[in-house]
Amino acid sequence: MNVALIAHDNKKDDIVNLAVAYQNILKTVNLYATGTTGSRIAEATGLTIHRFQSGPYGGDQQIGAMVANDEMDLVIFLRDPLTAQPHDPDITALLRICDVHNVPVASNLATAEALIRAMEQGLINFKPRSN
């Protein structure tokens, strides 16, 4: 199972705390993240994370490409709807591609926790992988 983790600057502490709280579940899946987010999570948890470019350099688009190629099962993109910075990745394109390919996506902590817990309990039916 492949899970992507992305966060706007003001939500990086939240996604790190989420990963720390759920590291026993997250260690059972393949993790992908944008550059800075992935570095911070790996440092705090010791989890193995495939890191793409940072968001401003296209990391969110690299994750979007995995979604489009049916290589991503779940996306957690904690966004800051009130104070997003100009260099923060735009969630709109990633939300659209997740919707097109029926990939669950969380944009806030409450939904992220619900999806992680559902994943742990086998309540989410992920698409069979072609590879």
Rank of each mutant, 00 (worst) to 15 (best):
N2D: 12
L5T: 03
L5W: 06
I6R: 03
A7C: 05
H8C: 15
H8S: 15
D9H: 06
N10D: 11
N10T: 08
K11F: 00
K11E: 08
D13W: 02
D14I: 01
D14M: 12
D14Y: 02
V16Y: 03
V16T: 00
N17I: 00
N17F: 00
L18H: 05
L18Y: 00
A19N: 05
V20K: 12
A21Y: 03
Y22K: 12
Y22G: 06
N24W: 01
N24P: 06
I25N: 02
I25F: 01
L26P: 03
K27Q: 13
K27H: 05
T28R: 12
T28N: 15
L31T: 11
L31Q: 09
Y32L: 13
Y32A: 05
Y32G: 01
T34V: 05
T34N: 04
T37H: 09
T37K: 07
S39F: 08
S39K: 11
R40Q: 08
R40M: 06
R40Y: 13
I41A: 02
I41D: 04
E43T: 03
E43P: 00
E43A: 11
T45S: 08
T45N: 09
T48K: 15
T48Q: 15
I49Q: 05
I49E: 02
H50L: 12
R51H: 10
R51Q: 10
R51D: 10
F52R: 04
F52Q: 02
F52D: 05
F52A: 10
Q53N: 13
S54M: 06
S54N: 15
P56W: 06
Y57V: 06
G58Q: 07
G59P: 00
D60P: 01
D60T: 07
Q61M: 14
Q62H: 07
I63V: 14
G64A: 12
G64K: 00
A65R: 14
M66G: 03
M66W: 07
V67G: 10
N69P: 08
D70A: 09
E71W: 02
E71A: 15
E71G: 04
M72I: 13
M72K: 11
L74F: 13
L74T: 13
V75K: 08
V75H: 08
V75F: 11
L78W: 03
L78D: 06
R79A: 14
D80H: 09
P81A: 10
Q85G: 02
Q85I: 03
Q85E: 11
P86F: 12
P86Y: 12
P89N: 09
T92E: 11
L94I: 15
L95F: 00
R96G: 00
R96V: 07
C98S: 13
D99S: 15
D99E: 14
V100P: 00
H101W: 12
V103L: 10
P104C: 09
V105L: 14
V105T: 08
A106S: 01
S107Y: 06
S107P: 01
N108R: 10
A110E: 11
E113V: 13
A114G: 09
A114D: 15
L115C: 02
L115E: 04
L115D: 01
I116D: 02
I116K: 04
R117F: 00
A118N: 08
M119H: 03
G122V: 10
G122L: 12
G122S: 07
K127V: 04
R129Y: 01
R129A: 11
S130P: 02
